[in-house]
C-alpha cells in the first residue's frame, strides 16, 4: 500500500476513535440538529414544498459549519506538531475531508429523518433526493475542511471567522444543491444536467486545491 494511503487510513481511524471516546461532540451536534428543527417547526408549523427544501438546506448548512469548524480545534497545537513529524500534510487534509464527509453524511441523514417526521416529506423521487443529500455532504466537506483549517490557524476568534469565511464560498454551491434537490419534488428541468455537471466539477477542483494548498497552511 502506498505511504499516503496508509497514512490516510491511519488518520481516519484515529479520528473515529477520538470521536467515539469523546462522544459529547457527536451528541452535541445531534442535539443541535434536533433543536434547530424544533425551532423551525415551532415558527412555521407548515411549509410549502419549495420552502421545505430551502429550510432543510439552511439547517444542514449550519449543522455542517458547526460540525467541521471543530475538526482542527479538538486537538492541541502540540499534538498537531507531533503528527507533522509522523505523516505528510497531504494525508492530513485528505483524511479530514473523507472523515468529515462520513460525519456529515450520518448527521445529514439523521437530520432529514427527524425533519421529515416533524414537518412531513413532500419528496416524490426518493432516490434522487438521497443522492442530492449525499452530494451535499460531499460538497460541504470539500469546501469547509480547508476553511476550517484556515480559521483554526487565524488565532483568537475562530468561531466568528468560520462562518464569515465559508458562507460566501458556499452560497453558489447551496444554490446548485437546492435546484438539484428541488427536482426531487417537481421533476427534472432543463437545467438539471448542467447544474449537476458544474457541481461535480467544483467537487473535483476544491479537494485538489485543498491538497495543493494545505501544506502551506500547516507549516509554522
Amino acid at each position: 500500500m502506498p505511504r499516503l494511503l496508509k497514512e490516510i487510513v491511519w488518520l481516519i481511524r484515529k479520528d473515529l476513535l477520538l470521536e467515539w471516546r469523546q462522544r459529547y461532540a457527536l451528541n452535541g451536534l445531534l442535539l443541535y440538529v434536533s433543536a434547530t428543527i424544533m425551532v423551525v417547526y415551532m415558527s412555521v408549523l407548515q411549509l410549502k414544498p419549495a420552502t421545505w427544501m430551502a429550510m432543510l438546506w439552511i439547517i444542514l448548512l449550519f449543522v455542517s459549519v458547526n460540525a467541521i469548524a471543530k475538526s482542527f480545534l479538538q486537538e492541541s497545537a502540540a499534538r498537531q506538531l507531533y503528527y507533522y513529524t509522523l505523516v505528510q500534510a497531504e494525508a492530513v487534509i485528505l483524511s479530514k475531508i473523507l472523515y468529515n464527509t462520513v460525519l456529515l453524511l450520518v448527521i445529514s441523514l439523521l437530520a432529514v429523518l427527524a425533519y421529515s417526521i416533524v414537518l412531513g416529506n413532500p419528496v416524490q423521487h426518493k432516490g434522487l433526493f438521497f443522492w442530492a443529500i449525499v452530494l451535499g455532504a460531499v460538497s460541504f466537506s470539500n469546501t469547509f475542511t480547508l476553511v476550517a483549517s484556515i480559521a483554526a490557524k487565524a488565532g483568537s476568534n475562530q468561531s466568528m471567522l468560520m462562518p464569515i469565511l465559508s458562507f460566501p464560498i458556499i452560497i453558489p454551491i447551496i444554490a446548485l444543491l437546492l435546484s438539484i434537490s428541488t427536482a426531487s419534488i417537481t421533476g427534472k428541468d432543463s437545467n438539471f444536467n448542467n447544474n449537476l455537471q458544474v457541481l461535480l466539477t467544483i467537487n473535483i477542483i476544491l479537494p485538489a486545491l485543498s491538497y495543493i494548498l494545505f501544506p502551506y497552511l500547516w507549516r509554522e
Binding site: 484556515i150 464560498i169 476544491l206 486545491l209 494548498l213
Partner: peptide
C-alpha cells in the same frame, strides 16, 4: 491560501 481557494471556488 484563502485568496487562492476562494478565487477558484468563485470564478467558475
Amino acid at each position: 491560501v484563502y485568496n487562492i481557494f476562494a478565487f477558484f471556488s468563485m470564478i467558475p
